[in-house]
Amino acid sequence: MSSLRVEAIDVFYGDVQAVWNISFQVEAGEIVTLVGANGAGKTTTLRTLAGLLRPRAGHILFDGKDVAGLPANELVARGIVLIPEARQLWPGMSVRDNLEMGAYTRAARAERHRTMQSVLEMFPILQKRLTQNAGTLSGGEQQMCAIGRGLMARPRLLMLDEPALGLAPMLVRQVFAALKEINGRGVTLLLVEQNVQHALRLAHRAYVLETGRVTLEGTGAALMDDARVRQRFLGEAGL
């Protein structure tokens, strides 16, 4: 099982800083969630960890090795996989091709038939959709396909950016159940979610991000009881 240590990273878009001196860690086998309002820098953080953005300062240690600044394909090969915001499937490719392309790295490709089988067991609906273009799927099916594609890469650390966004409550529960199962199989999870209540309940530990900085951290249960969190994210009126 893999661990992640983020040490004081700064991330910029051009000259504009979006992430300020953020540090956190995800221990091997843990589920950690980053919560925060829109624009807090959650997506930026995940995209940096996945190698789509480069941190201007700081270190990213994956299983003890500094991986900051490595290109995305190199990170995927090491087991860091991001399921991006808004699914980002290939709309003109079949569900089967979307899943198979998830297993692009050499190691994942060798195992792809077996991985595919376990993905289809987890999301049986995809079995019926295999030959359909991904662009024709419903929102829930698209999210399952996106998670399935991420699993096809055989991740050691799986990062998810708002996997429950726009889904009906029943599907949200199904997605969170799947995440729990994936974690049970030994995959370390880093989850970003607007659905704070679900996320805190699932996560072992959580960090609160505000305007690009970590402002609070604690176990999921502790943050659930924190007055500031309740007021800001769980819809409780302030006193």
Binding site: A50, G51, L52, P71, A72, N73, V76, A77, V81, L82, P84, Q88, L89, W90, P91, G92, M93, M101, G102, Y104, T105, A108, R149, A153
Partner: peptide, 16 residues
């Protein structure tokens, strides 16, 4: 085709 249809998703799948 993956890079053509969605470049980020291709990068995230390990495409060089």
């Amino acid at each position: 085709r993956a890079v053509t249809q969605n470049r980020d998703a291709a990068l995230l799948s390990g495409v060089n």
